[in-house]
Computed example of a mutant assay.
Amino acid sequence: MPKVGMEPLRRKALIDAALSAIGERGSLDVTMSEIASRAGVSSALAHHYFGAKAELLQATMQHLLAELNADARHALSRAGSPRERVSAIIAVNFSAKQFRPETIAAWLAFYVEAQKSPTLRRLLRIYARRLHSNLMSGLANLLPRHEAQQSAETIAALIDGFYIRCALKQGEPDARSAIAQVTDYVALKLAQAGASTCRTQS
């Protein structure tokens, strides 16, 4: 039987091991025994905590979402202006904690698996709604509502696109370049909106 008080530590170790295994394999085609071995526990103990592999994969996805959400909330709490809120969310998605090879590979694997897993698809929808809401918390004060909605969708697509492109090529993720390119889009969109406002007023 597992030791009293060890469950949170063991569960976290198994989730970290799952991320590592998925990142190395590039897919969700990993076994519970492989994950348990990486976590330094027995396969039986892994099953005791999570039951089947699907439950561990769901917990791993939820862990990624929880970390990203916590980082986003912290970043937004420190942002002042609406523009800073948008920049903060972009930066969070490409932070050293989030935009690393194993996490990038895990996100791509979950996207692929979500095509046939309703549970993972639901979790990805939660991620998409949160990202959209966080971006709108700044964009809604910078652009007309319809344009803000469209811009939030475009920024989200750019973020997801950089993750996919990075997962499909070798080398270290270039977070600085990704942030710069997404920020360039925001600057261009806001400049266009400003020019349009000036023409309307003249």
Rank of each mutant, 00 (worst) to 15 (best):
A66T: 11
P82L: 13
A152C: 02
V86N: 07
E34L: 10
F50H: 02
F99E: 01
K53R: 07
L65F: 10
A36C: 10
H132P: 00
L131R: 01
Y49R: 06
A91H: 15
R83K: 14
G51N: 01
E153Q: 04
H132N: 04
A106F: 04
A59P: 04
A59S: 12
H47Y: 13
S27P: 00
D29Q: 14
A152M: 08
W107R: 08
R83Y: 13
V30E: 08
A66K: 13
A54E: 12
K116P: 04
Q115A: 14
I155V: 14
S95H: 02
S42F: 09
Q149N: 07
M136D: 04
Q115D: 14
L142G: 07
H146D: 11
K116V: 14
I90H: 00
A39C: 06
A66F: 04
Y49T: 11
L131I: 02
Y49D: 15
S133T: 10
A140R: 05
N69R: 09
S27A: 13
E34H: 07
P101Q: 05
R125H: 09
N141F: 15
H48L: 11
A72H: 04
A128L: 07
F110R: 03
S37K: 11
E153C: 07
F99M: 06
A106D: 09
S81M: 09
G40N: 07
Q149C: 10
Q98C: 10
T31M: 08
I35C: 12
P118T: 03
R73F: 11
V30A: 01
F94C: 09
F94I: 03
R83G: 11
P82S: 03
E147L: 13
K53T: 12
L65Y: 01
N69Y: 13
S77V: 09
A46I: 05
L57F: 01
V30R: 00
S95C: 02
K116A: 14
K116F: 08
R121D: 15
L143S: 05
A52L: 03
H63L: 01
A75L: 08
A96E: 12
D29H: 12
A114M: 08
A52W: 06
E147H: 04
V41M: 04
H146V: 15
I126N: 07
L124W: 00
I104Y: 01
